[in-house]
Amino acid sequence: MKVGEYCSRAVITIDSDADLTAAAHMMRDHHVGFLIVVVPGQTVREPVGVLTDRDIVLQVLAKNVDPAALTVGDIMTREPMIAREEDDLGELLQGLRLAGIRRVPVVDSQGALVGIISVDDAIEVIAGLLADVSGSIRHQQQREWRTRKI
């Protein structure tokens, strides 16, 4: 299973020079807690960082720092873990677990942003596979019961 088959293509990005208030508004407006940071003006959107709602809380609000004095680039996680479309989903999940993170940007073979993959996406895939297996078992049991009645 390749990451590109299961990642979400709807990606919310923000420029590294945007202010934190704009980032918070964007998170609220799009109902997300994770933004992929890109460099403004680039024709190819390459992720240069990620910003989470937790970053804003722990690095700004909890330290009583004025959010107006900072940009997204000041507090973003630089050089985030990135998945490639052709990466194996199982291997990526293992990497996410070891790193203690839940979401990563997905890029194509040229490094351009194409999506985002989260643990939630993987759970959905795994749940679907388990439902298929469960259905196969149930179907086999029903066939056996019908055979016994004959």
Rank of each mutant, 00 (worst) to 15 (best):
Q42I: 07
T43F: 13
T43G: 08
V44F: 13
R45N: 14
E46R: 15
E46C: 14
E46Y: 11
P47G: 06
P47Y: 09
G49P: 12
L51N: 07
T52L: 10
R54M: 12
R54V: 08
D55S: 14
D55I: 12
I56G: 05
I56D: 05
I56W: 03
V57I: 15
V57R: 15
Q59K: 15
Q59C: 05
V60F: 03
V60Q: 00
L61N: 09
A62E: 12
A62W: 11
A62L: 10
A62R: 10
K63T: 02
N64R: 09
V65H: 12
D66M: 08
D66F: 10
D66R: 10
D66Y: 06
P67W: 01
P67R: 05
P67Q: 01
P67A: 04
P67T: 02
A68W: 00
A69V: 03
L70N: 00
L70D: 01
L70P: 02
T71Y: 05
T71D: 02
V72C: 08
V72D: 04
G73A: 01
G73D: 02
G73H: 01
G73F: 00
D74Q: 04
D74W: 05
I75H: 11
I75W: 03
R78N: 13
R78K: 14
R78W: 04
E79F: 11
P80G: 02
P80R: 01
M81C: 04
M81W: 03
M81L: 13
M81K: 13
I82M: 03
I82Q: 05
A83T: 02
E85S: 12
E85F: 06
D88S: 10
D88A: 11
L89V: 11
L89S: 00
G90Q: 10
E91T: 04
L92A: 02
Q94L: 11
Q94K: 11
Q94H: 12
G95N: 10
L96S: 10
R97T: 12
R97G: 14
A99F: 11
I101H: 07
R102K: 01
R102C: 04
R102N: 01
R102W: 08
R103Y: 00
R103Q: 09
V104L: 02
P105V: 02
P105F: 04
V107I: 08
V107E: 04
Q110R: 15
G111L: 05
G111S: 04
G111Q: 06
A112P: 05
A112T: 07
A112E: 13
A112Q: 14
A112H: 08
L113V: 09
L113P: 11
L113K: 10
V114D: 08
G115E: 01
G115A: 02
I116A: 03
I116K: 01
I116P: 00
I116R: 00
I116Q: 00
I117R: 04
S118W: 13
S118F: 06
V119N: 07
V119M: 15
D121N: 15
D121Y: 05
I123Y: 07
E124F: 07
E124H: 14
E124Q: 15
I126C: 03
I126R: 03
I126P: 01
I126V: 13
